[in-house]
Write a protein that binds this DNA or RNA. Structure first.
Lengths: 192, 192
DNA sequence: TTTCACCTTCCTAACGGTCGTTAGGATATA
DNA sequence: TATATCCTAACGACCGTTAGGAAGGTGAAA
């Protein structure tokens, strides 16, 4: 489908150049069509952008669910630590993660409200999911220091986002060394 | 000085709209001059942007030094935790921090090299400074669990950047709750 | 003290270029 | 026949930038 091809290409351009920096001409050129042809599939730049965002968040959501499902029998530490490697690999494969992070932190001002309405449920469900995971796993493993699972989940999310942004900013090497630095300390603070 | 007024205004615009999104017309309008008058003070948009970045990093550097100097007799935990509150207040006062973070993570592609040459020394000196602080303070307090001060500093930087980006993205309220969640865990992992 | 050249700062006007978007028509598909 | 997809052409708006000149201040020469 051509509409999908346009959308995939747009994700890459929005990720690298931002909303204002990305241009419909260049997106069309990479797809192999002319600029006005985009309007046969999307109402305009805003529509393309929000479609790309919705698609990216949905894809991310289902990939996330698949990851957590695939490791559900492993020990809690493996699950939490493995997640870092998982999204490092994910963000190498394509630019969806990069796009999501950029839009999350620096949305186009005009679309701030719409963007927030996509993101807040996403983060909230992430937070809820993690809280439940910690609670259920701790019932079996009795490995966590505190029973405030909600705050532990929030702290974990903060650390993942800190390292994720590092990955986006300065690449895999510095990301790896940050992860090696932060994980032992953080896990030591988390466990019994 | 008018050049300074232009620069200060530009920092705010670049922070909110990004490099591509910011427009010289609007900057000039807010300053109270016409667009071409900017060219009496700066060679062009690139020059204004890089000047704003250099100014912001220098200011940030000296504010940072002043903070760490003002708390140098407090216990290590106060210094480290107090830093979170310090930069929260700093970023409320003006948009310099916001501008710095945005440029760090998503520089204009064309100026990526120049931007990196400003940032890498900044982060490296931050890392060195923190490593030394941890080592010297631990010699007195014997409070840290590990003697790998360099990695501890890197981990601390990761956590601060994670919460900082949260501050930029979703404001003071969510920042506070993230900080309350992450600090006890992180400090527990760091101390003896 | 006056004059004159120079420099800075700001202006209006306009440049070429790119932007997102629309109109209208060709072609193929159903 | 109707609909979807692509095209060329062109729209108005805004972009960063430059040309050229007015106003004002500075400082040296007459």
């Amino acid at each position: 489908m051509k509409a999908d091809h346009i959308l995939q290409t747009a994700v890459g351009h929005f990720a690298k150049e931002g909303f204002e920096g990305a241009s419909l001409s260049k997106i069309a050129e990479e797809v192999g069509i002319k600029k006005p042809s985009i309007y046969a599939h999307y109402k305009g730049k805003d529509d393309l952008f929000l479609s790309a965002l919705q698609y990216s968040l949905n894809t991310q959501k289902s990939h996330l669910a698949a990851y957590f499902n695939s490791v559900r029998d492993e020990p809690l530490e493996s699950i939490l630590y493995g997640y870092f490697n998982w999204f490092a690999k994910e963000s190498q494969d394509n630019e969806r993660m990069n796009f999501i992070l950029r839009v999350a932190y620096f949305p186009p001002l005009r679309l701030e409200k719409e963007v927030g309405e996509f993101f807040n449920p996403f983060f909230d469900s992430m937070h809820r999911h993690l809280t439940r995971l910690l609670r259920e796993r701790d019932r079996q493993e009795k490995v966590l220091h505190s029973e405030d699972f909600s705050n532990a989940a929030l702290a974990y999310l903060t650390v993942t986002e800190g390292t994720m942004t590092e990955l986006v900013y300065s690449g895999m090497d510095r990301y790896e060394s940050r992860l090696q630095a932060v994980w032992p300390i953080f896990w030591r603070g988390l466990r019994k």
